[in-house]
Amino acid sequence: MSGKNWDRVPIDAQSVDAPLSQSAIFLVVTVAGDQPALARICSVLGELDDLVKTVGIRDLGGRLSCIAGIGSDLWDRLSPGRRPLELKPFAPIKGAVHSAPSTPGDLLFHIRAERSDMCFEFERILLDRLGPDVTVVDEVTGFRYFDARDLLGFIDGTANPTGIDLPASALISNEDGDFAGGSYVVVQKYLHDMQAWARIPTPEQEAIIGRTKIDNIEIDDDDAPRKSHKSLATIEDDDGNEYDILRDNMPFGRPGQNEFGTYFIGYSRYLWVTEKMLQRMYVGDPPGAYDRLLDVSTPQTGTTFFAPTRPMLQALVEGAQHQLPAAR
């Protein structure tokens, strides 16, 4: 959905608008509770851009980037009493058949590059600097699968906003002026039952997804009693205006462990849009007519973060450092 006043909002939104990469690492950690640990974490967050340059200079064509997202609890520790309007922990969703869990996470690092070794090296150095002050609760290495398909065989991210629609969909504007340019981030790690999916005939798979498998043509199911994943994930207001989010999903897997999945990551201007999309998937529209993709795709995690702009992140950590004991 197009937003207003974007020409008057200064934007430096980390690298939310970076194009789909060949490789990615999704790293979620929790932060130790003592104040010296928090001070040391702030020091590392303040040096993220320098770390990207340190690793990225080895191959500028590798397009290394890293987005840092901050969870609700950690945000309150860094900036008590001043927070983005919608920031809150991920709320678990209970449908009649399927549920979405809420899992811990203070920091999200979304690392992207055209080379997997650059993602690996950046994460290695980052974790070394974070040290024992953090605990890794989830770590997923994603890859681009052929022509941006998921492991179920369908092209992913077709409906992503582009051009001027991208910031209007993914970045906060004047409705929350103190945090303009930031973005709400929701992540979920899904595991797929590939054998169960393979038993479903292709026409039925296409009806579940809402697109044809080979050529990615959208299927119109507006009048169907059971909506597709595509339709359930489409959010409109009462006037028919569509609200988009920016997805940067990645497949991941370990065939030797029978692990196949999709890491969902959605950047949005309004957190409620992503929340409503997930409610429609799990509860159904009408209630009970849930997203049939969930019959073969099971969420393992669910966490919400806020990705501030670069200047906002610097101001946040500098403000916190003034209130905390010096890092040692």
Rank of each mutant, 00 (worst) to 15 (best):
residue 64 L to A: 13
residue 46 G to Y: 08
residue 61 G to L: 01
residue 49 D to T: 15
residue 60 L to H: 14
residue 21 S to Q: 10
residue 51 L to K: 10
residue 73 D to R: 09
residue 76 D to P: 03
residue 82 R to K: 15
residue 32 A to I: 13
residue 42 C to L: 06
residue 72 S to W: 01
residue 44 V to C: 00
residue 67 I to N: 12
residue 55 V to L: 01
residue 57 I to T: 12
residue 44 V to P: 00
residue 47 E to S: 12
residue 61 G to Q: 03
residue 70 I to H: 01
residue 32 A to K: 15
residue 68 A to S: 10
residue 75 W to H: 09
residue 27 L to F: 01
residue 78 L to Q: 11
residue 32 A to Q: 15
residue 28 V to T: 06
residue 67 I to C: 09
residue 22 Q to S: 08
residue 40 R to F: 05
residue 44 V to W: 00
residue 47 E to N: 15
residue 40 R to K: 13
residue 46 G to P: 07
residue 29 V to R: 05
residue 65 S to V: 15
residue 55 V to M: 00
residue 84 P to W: 09
residue 49 D to E: 15
residue 69 G to I: 01
residue 35 Q to S: 15
residue 57 I to L: 08
residue 59 D to E: 06
residue 74 L to H: 08
residue 59 D to V: 05
residue 58 R to D: 14
residue 22 Q to D: 07
residue 51 L to A: 11
residue 39 A to M: 00
residue 44 V to L: 04
residue 73 D to G: 07
residue 59 D to N: 08
residue 35 Q to T: 15
residue 73 D to M: 05
residue 53 K to T: 07
residue 64 L to C: 13
residue 23 S to I: 08
residue 42 C to E: 06
residue 61 G to R: 04
residue 49 D to Y: 05
residue 45 L to V: 09
residue 21 S to F: 04
residue 39 A to R: 00
residue 59 D to F: 00
residue 45 L to Y: 05
residue 54 T to L: 11
residue 78 L to S: 13
residue 70 I to S: 01
residue 31 V to C: 04
residue 82 R to L: 14
residue 22 Q to H: 03
residue 78 L to Y: 10
residue 76 D to I: 10
residue 44 V to F: 00
residue 38 L to Q: 13
residue 35 Q to C: 12
residue 54 T to S: 07
residue 50 D to R: 12
residue 62 G to C: 09
residue 76 D to N: 14
residue 56 G to W: 00
residue 30 T to F: 11
residue 40 R to T: 13
residue 83 R to Q: 11
residue 45 L to N: 05
residue 49 D to V: 13
residue 82 R to C: 13
residue 61 G to S: 07
residue 32 A to T: 14
residue 38 L to P: 05
residue 26 F to D: 02
residue 22 Q to Y: 04
residue 71 G to E: 01
residue 44 V to T: 07
residue 41 I to E: 03
residue 43 S to D: 09
residue 52 V to F: 00
residue 67 I to V: 12
residue 42 C to P: 01
residue 41 I to M: 06
residue 50 D to A: 11
residue 58 R to H: 14
residue 78 L to H: 11
